[in-house]
């Protein structure tokens, strides 16, 4: 197998090493959500983790974020083991209506993580973050007065306002309509590129993963392990029509799709880097 030349030379900022999570229910019933997952995210890199519904994606995100203790393995951020939510993490959750605070206005939600800053700076940061997500004029409304897509923009702005080093997103666009979803994807790509933000996107949508990421990790069904690692060599800025019509895009897509639909019977987690040449043949 050819050695990949697409691996980013930037230092690793975030890594998962042999992560496993088994939930133990009240009556001792066990659910093994994550089998064995390892991956790395380099500084400034956009990584997507794609996996079928119910495979433990949210569990994985909560583990990475330090919100949930893994049963096995370790998460490292900036060369330190993660035991609680590290400073420098901005997180966008799957369900915006359970993550934005309904008693706070949009502005107050966005300023929520800036408690320790002086008022003037808080206002500036919030305005800057809201501009990045193209939201203006709704600062004094409540989140529940906005559409789903706008609410998820507020959630992204809340994360950006803290000037995070890593942006973690759990299926952020799963519950909005198709057109809104495309707009939000383009916006995310733009923000991530402009800020050079290290981004980890968790999704069940293969197209979304390939469209946005530099590298994609493909997860199996529960208990999940990494089926495949794909380095996505598509030019940036990516374009909704041109990128998705690029033959390489279609090849990546077929590769990932095959991996999920026909996983090899051998369940040992092998992280395969598919070099561009191999995908094209």
């Amino acid at each position: 197998m050819t050695i990949s030349t697409t691996t980013s030379p930037a230092p690793v900022l975030l890594s998962a090493d042999g992560i496993g999570k088994t939930y133990v229910g009240e009556k001792g019933a066990q659910v093994e959500a994550i089998g064995d997952v390892s991956f790395t995210v380099a500084e400034g890199e956009f990584v997507a983790i794609v996996g079928p519904s119910g495979c433990g994606k949210t569990t994985l995100l909560r583990t990475i974020a330090g919100l949930l203790k893994p049963s096995r393995g370790e998460i490292r951020f900036d060369d330190k083991a993660v035991r609680r939510v590290p400073d420098g993490f901005g997180i966008v959750f799957q369900e915006y209506n359970r993550s934005l605070f309904p008693w706070l206005t949009v502005r107050k939600n966005v300023e929520f993580g800036l408690k320790d800053l002086p008022r003037q700076l808080r206002t500036e940061r919030a305005a800057e973050a809201l501009a990045r997500v193209h939201l203006a004029g709704v600062e004094d409304q409540y989140p529940w007065q906005l559409s789903g897509g706008m609410q998820q923009r507020v959630a992204i702005a809340r994360a950006l306002a803290t000037h995070p080093r890593v942006l973690l997103m759990d299926e952020p666009f799963a519950s909005v309509d198709a057109q809104t979803r495309i707009n939000l994807e383009l916006m995310t790509a733009e923000i991530s590129a402009e800020l050079g933000l290290t981004t980890l996107l968790i999704t069940h949508d293969i197209d979304e993963a390939i469209f946005l990421a530099d590298r994609v990790f493909v997860l199996s069904a529960r208990p999940s392990h990494v089926l495949m690692e794909v380095a996505v060599d598509l030019p940036r800025p990516r374009d909704e029509l041109a990128t998705k019509a690029d033959p390489r895009f279609l090849d990546y897509r077929r590769t990932v799709y095959d991996a999920i639909v026909h996983p090899t019977t051998d369940t040992t987690p092998i992280a395969t880097t598919i070099p561009r040449a191999e995908v094209l043949t």
Binding site: V85, R98, S99, F101, K115
Partner: peptide
């Protein structure tokens, strides 16, 4: 809602007291 508490844990540097004051109390109001 545990969702509010998780958000709070991300954006309040994890202090239990400020989660209580800034999120749990208003949510329970």
């Amino acid at each position: 809602d545990p969702g509010y508490i998780e958000s709070a844990r991300v954006y309040t540097s994890g202090s239990s007291f400020s989660i209580l004051r800034r999120v749990v109390l208003p949510a329970a109001t």
